[in-house]
Write a protein that binds this DNA or RNA. Sequence first.
DNA 1: TGTACATCAGTGAACGCGCGTTCACTGATGTAC
DNA 2: TGTACATCAGTGAACGCGCGTTCACTGATGTAC
Lengths: 206, 206
Amino acid sequence: MACTIEIPEKQTFADLKIQEQNAKRKVIIDAAERVFGVKPFHEVNIRDIAAEAGISHATIYRYFPNQQTLFLEAFLRGMDEILARIDAIAANNPAGNLLEAVVADFIDFLTQKDHYFRMMTHFMLDGELAPELVERLNNTARALLNRLEAIFTAGNTTENPRAMARALFAAINGVLITFRNYPGRDRQAVFDHMQFLGKLIARRFN
Amino acid sequence: MACTIEIPEKQTFADLKIQEQNAKRKVIIDAAERVFGVKPFHEVNIRDIAAEAGISHATIYRYFPNQQTLFLEAFLRGMDEILARIDAIAANNPAGNLLEAVVADFIDFLTQKDHYFRMMTHFMLDGELAPELVERLNNTARALLNRLEAIFTAGNTTENPRAMARALFAAINGVLITFRNYPGRDRQAVFDHMQFLGKLIARRFN
DNA sequence: TGTACATCAGTGAACGCGCGTTCACTGATGTAC
DNA sequence: TGTACATCAGTGAACGCGCGTTCACTGATGTAC
């Protein structure tokens, strides 16, 4: 306990300015998240987000070069959340059915926060992202696949664990897309059905 | 051979008129298919299709109430093609690996004719179709699931064959979506990878 | 301590463009008498 | 056989609307001297 005084890092005015810019970016993304929670993804526009953030829509362009980048930033935040959740499950779930638990959580999360899922499909299908953004997108995808691969490796599959990870990831995405508008079922029934299929698939991948 | 004279069905002027309308509708859809073969789905518009059909874009609205209906009509034609292909495979493939063959063909077809796949995702994700159109969409989906279910039933799965059909259909859709923009791979490599994953999944579903 | 100037965040208004859809009109064909 | 009228397919022009993005400007704050 010789030294209890906190010595602050050296910080310049320029540093502060950058921090402030980042803080403002965060405020904007936070606002976007709130809007996404209320409106379907493809109806959300820059003006909505600006209004929610309490600024002019032109101001957004001071902090993001364009809409795609803002959306991607929001999406990556969601991906981080998923990764953290998977890690938490893996940590608390040393027993056998890790795969099923992860799949269930994945479906759970992406059903609750539907906008993340819609953004994912948007980037997969329509996205025309700048190469640098594609790179960031791929990084998180890779991080997710790494998690899944680790599970398969630990489970001693006869298949290539990486291929299994890819196939499982794709399969669950497919469930989320294919049955989201299951005719004549309410939200809860759709969710149950997705979980049911997720479980079936996870079982097949064991 | 008592009677070789063909007796034509009774046909009124009104019948003829309806037939002509249907023929014109077909010309328009044919034109749409050609445009879809050249342009990415989400860039195709009514004016393109009209130009390809050699008519004014306003004329299209004499034969289709709106764009969605025209697109759906084109899509259903693609679905019919898929169903016919599956039936052909089932007929020529009495041996064991029917499932893998069907999956391979499904991926093959929807990769070649990408616009059908894009339309499918469009209807699943963004589509706001009139109830009557949703009904038609569901009918073909059901027809496809019936085919898959029959394969599982014949294969004596321990699982519910209908559930297996749904899960497989979703899983393959997922592969087609998730890896269509696989970074840094050309068309051929993407295709091979999809087929590889399709095979892996089919194996898991055996 | 004050003055002139530079910087820069924030903004409302406007631009631009695409595109589905509708309108008002034309001209050909059919129908009644 | 001819005339007046109705029907209806086809059309170019225009409407309407959304919405990402940019522009020209304001006003506050910082800086040089």
